[in-house]
Each structure stands twice: as C-alpha cells, then as structure tokens.
Design a protein around this nucleic acid. Sequence first.
DNA 1: CTGTATCCTTAGGGATACTG
DNA 2: CAGTATCCCTAAGGATACAG
Lengths: 135, 135
Amino acid sequence: MRRSDCPISNVLDHVGDRWSLLVIRDIALYGKRSFTELLDSAEHVATNVLTDRLRRLEQTGLLTRTRDSGDARKNIYRLTQRGRDLLPILIEMILWSARHDPQTNAPPELVRRAQTDRNALIADLQARIDAVDGR
Amino acid sequence: MRRSDCPISNVLDHVGDRWSLLVIRDIALYGKRSFTELLDSAEHVATNVLTDRLRRLEQTGLLTRTRDSGDARKNIYRLTQRGRDLLPILIEMILWSARHDPQTNAPPELVRRAQTDRNALIADLQARIDAVDGR
DNA sequence: CTGTATCCTTAGGGATACTG
DNA sequence: CAGTATCCCTAAGGATACAG
C-alpha cells in the first residue's frame, strides 16, 4: 500500500483514485450522509465501487459508519477529523479549476472567500459539517 | 474524459491517478527536469507509465516538452503556469500528512512556513521553479 | 430502500526488449 | 543515455442480479 514515505504520495495512497475524493466532497460540501445520497452524484459511481470506497475510507480512518437510529436498514457516513482535514485540499482544487478551467462551476462566492478570507472559510465549512453531524 | 462540471472532479480528471501528481511534485519541489531524473523517484514508476503521463500532462497543458539545446537526445520537461499553480494543492497534502501521518517525512521547515507564512512560502517555491527554468 | 455480490470487460501498469 | 513499444497480468470498475 504505502509506496514511499513521501507525504504527497501518502495522501495519494489514501485518496489518489478517481472516486474517493468525490465521496469526501459529497460528505464535506454537500451534506450527504447516506449510501443513496452518495450514489446520486453527477459522476455516477457504481454501487459496488461506492461500497468498496466507503469500506476503504472507513478502514483508513477517514470516515465512520454508524447505524441510523431512526431507520435500522440505513448507515450514516460521517467524516472523522482526519477526513474533515482534507477540506483545504478540496478548496485548493476548486481554486485551481476556477482559475484554469472556468467552464467548471466553482461557486463564485466560495472562490471569493477562499481568496480573501481563507481561514475563516475553512472554519465555516468545518462548522457546517459539525452542525449536520450534530456536533 | 470530463465526468462532470464539478471543479474538484475536474482536477481529478487531470491528475487524479496514482502517478501524475508525483511527476508534478518532482518537477515543482525537487527540481527534476529530465526523463531519467523523473524515473529515479522513491515510488519507482515504470518507463512506459512515465512516458504516458508526460504525454498526457503535456496534452492537458500542465507541462511543456522541449529539446535540450545541449544534449540533442534529451527533452526538458517544465511546468506551465497551469502546472505550477498546482503547488498549493501539494502544500496542503504535505500539511495533511504532517498532521495525520507523521511517519511520513514532511520537511519540518516547510510545514512551519506553510502554517505561519503560507503565501510567502508559495511565492518562494514558485520563484525557485522559475530560477531552475531560467525565468 | 440500503446495500452487497457476481460477472465480465477494459484500463492500468510492471517487466523488459528494443530503437535512435 | 533517452525514451518507446510489446507482452501480459492484475486491478478498476460498469452492469446487473441479488439479499436483508
């Protein structure tokens, strides 16, 4: 699994595939918490792939899986602090695309705040995650 | 190629595989510019894979390939501004690993400056790239 | 509805031979 | 030395059937 002790390579070993970071994105930025919500993304991940990624992300400590107390059939997927701390990477990706591939739909308000008020923005996004998770 | 118009997905469509960002890293942070230098990384990329990634990164405008004026057999691979602007993403990855997987060898001085002096650090790293490339 | 398992095709990529 | 091409195997992942 670990290809080297390089910190960049390490992140790629965790989320350097074509799907993991999109799952993180949907939980962190779009408030999704259930399997079905996560399935329903613009990129159309297959069910088996989503299952596999949720497993791996749980095993590497980026998210937790808990039974929904209301609906017993259902799991709730939440980011751990380790997972939430990927937010700055997501932010930088949004900024890069906003600058270099403007046909992508980076939210202008988020881009503006990331440039003027980066730390406060990240704190706000963290707080929103906490709120959804009842923390 | 483009799976959606999401800016995060867009970055992953460019460098969301297990090798591209390591090539970017080696050029941006370690001053490598030639095929052989890029081959010689801790993660041991295969020659055909490196060839393929250099092609793709050139096609998507992240780097340029030019003949070495000294050694005619040799190409020089340089980041474009588009490629150099991936630096903040690399920085955030280093910070994440430094915090959550401290067994990785993130340079402590870089981590310290990233936390205290982020913009200046990025400007300095940019300047170092420019210096290597004679800009 | 919330996932999981199976089937099968394709893409990724390691080893290595080869070319200029 | 600086790559490129080939061979071949494995892992990724799409479609879909199936289970609780």
